[in-house]
Amino acid sequence: MITEQNLVTDENRLERFLAFSAEVTAFTVFELQGTGQAEAYLKTIGDVVGAALLDEILTVHGKQMSTTGDEGRPARNAYLRREIFGSEKLGPIARNIVKLWYSGVWYELPTAWTENYGPAPKDVTFVVSPASYVEGLLWTAIGAHPAGAKAPGYGSWAAAPRIPRFAGDPAHLPAAADEEPARLPA
């Protein structure tokens, strides 16, 4: 049921987009905002597939906001799989949102999607902007830097990588993992 409170509006769309994005990228809203790309991605999605589809995703997502915290994660993920990622219509868009944040690239949607829900004439693979490539999250996720940007400094490559910690990591990194790089095996 869509409540009044759950409505996506021009005023709250960015905030709702960030909340959804944080959930599906495992980066915090703070980190996502730090990329400076949120508005550009919102605009990209709107330009390529239309804002209504995004609003639909955000609305479906909004319905599950009640289960929070780490203990609520499995239930939320199951819900996202059934209602968003597993939706013929919303799934490909949601996956593209994940890929946008991680790489700065809008990937052309699957043909099956375009046949059923298209046409979407602007739907080709493209980099949103030079800055969006540089702000791709995948580099941060692996403790590296985008090739050709944000260089870590002379000789930094000789040391073990610093892989940042994140909430919900299935590998359960030890608490100090972001301070202490993994050691060379003895």
Partner: peptide, 19 residues
């Protein structure tokens, strides 16, 4: 797209796969 990962599973998956 293929492994249906998102969120923390994706982030961990990238570490395991790329690093």
């Amino acid at each position: 797209d293929g492994h249906n990962r998102f969120g923390a599973d994706l982030r961990r998956g990238l570490i395991d796969r790329v690093s």
